[in-house]
Amino acid sequence: MAKHTLSVLVENHPGVLSRVAGLFSRRGFNIDSLAVGVTENPDISRMTIVVDGDDYTVEQVSKQLNKLIDVIKIKQLDKTDSVSRELALIKVAATTSTRSEIIQIVEIFRANIVDVSKNTLTIEISGGSSKVAALEDMLRQFGIKEIVRTGTIAIERGNKYIKANNNEEE
């Protein structure tokens, strides 16, 4: 099964998220991640949904989402033609002997240290999910205390954009 990224414009109403989430559970679809935030138009929010499934599933997800009155537009994003990022905050155990090694790894990944305490370092990383996973993998040996991830957000490359009213080309 492959992962598919859907960019979904929805009305910025209370209850929309529960409708979308409810639809996924009711129809037996799996959400890999879901990120939501307001767009340049405050009446409209954008959800980036990563779905796990075959082509049939993704087509059904799109069609069923389209039936929700609060859903304005759906676009499936092509992997090669879009940029996707996720943000993670990783709190890792750090002692005087391991701290410098961790900092080196963080530098290699171009991540940031955003908090430090006697026993921990908190690292902020943004990137594709594989980069985040790779950093997580490298840090595991030191003892990861907590991870917070945002879920993927994605945008199309080039001068295409998804608008509520008209079509995608500029």
């Binding site: 049939y56 087509e59 059904q60 069609k63 069923q64 389209n66 039936k67």
Partner: peptide
């Protein structure tokens, strides 16, 4: 009339 029925 419902596109979601096609192919379901």
């Amino acid at each position: 009339i419902d596109p979601a029925e096609i192919g379901k």
